[in-house]
Amino acid sequence: METQKTHILRRLFFSTLYLSAFTFGGGYVIVTLLKNRFVDQYHWIDEDEMLDLVAIAQSAPGAIAVNGAIVVGYKLAGLTGVAVSVLGAVIPPMAILTVVSYCYDAFSTNPYIAAMLGGMRAGVGAVITSVVYDMGKNVVRAGDPVNVVIMILSFCISYFLNVNVVFIIIAVAVFGALRSVAAQKAGERS
């Protein structure tokens, strides 16, 4: 029994460590990889439950990769599982960025690397523009005018009035909660 648990914990740790070290391109990639590993390969979680776990990971604040590791860890081994999988998910980016930040000063004073980073900044701007375009298009295409208004208003309030991002998120979350409660009540009445 005890050895079974340490076996699960060890696999959990090395799975999240490995996935976190080789996941480029954002949180949603790691979610599919987690499913791949724990549903298709190990058969420790069934498919439907995995979908709900991903929904939980997306419902809570924080990085999807970390949240995904937490739900899977919790599901498989409780609080110890959470600790082990978070550690696995966090070590690779921490190790890499520690090295990068020690080199950064030497990095940024070197004219060639400064030129490289300067040019790449325009590229990052393009990547973000492209992402925002796709996400914005999805909001508009979904056809809910209230969501479009939320998007435009939040942009104007944060860009032109410089209101702290946190207040905007809290205000929209409260509005969204009231709205979904109202929608559920309306659904019950009809």
């Binding site: 939980i56 925002v132 909001v139």
Partner: peptide
């Protein structure tokens, strides 16, 4: 989870707007 997920559906457009703002800063 449906209540939480419906709330998040309203939050998503705001998040898009905030990302756009940060992107403009970088540009």
């Amino acid at each position: 989870l449906s209540l939480i997920q419906q709330t998040l559906a309203s939050l998503r457009p705001a998040v898009v707007a905030l990302i756009a703002k940060a992107g403009i800063g970088i540009l």
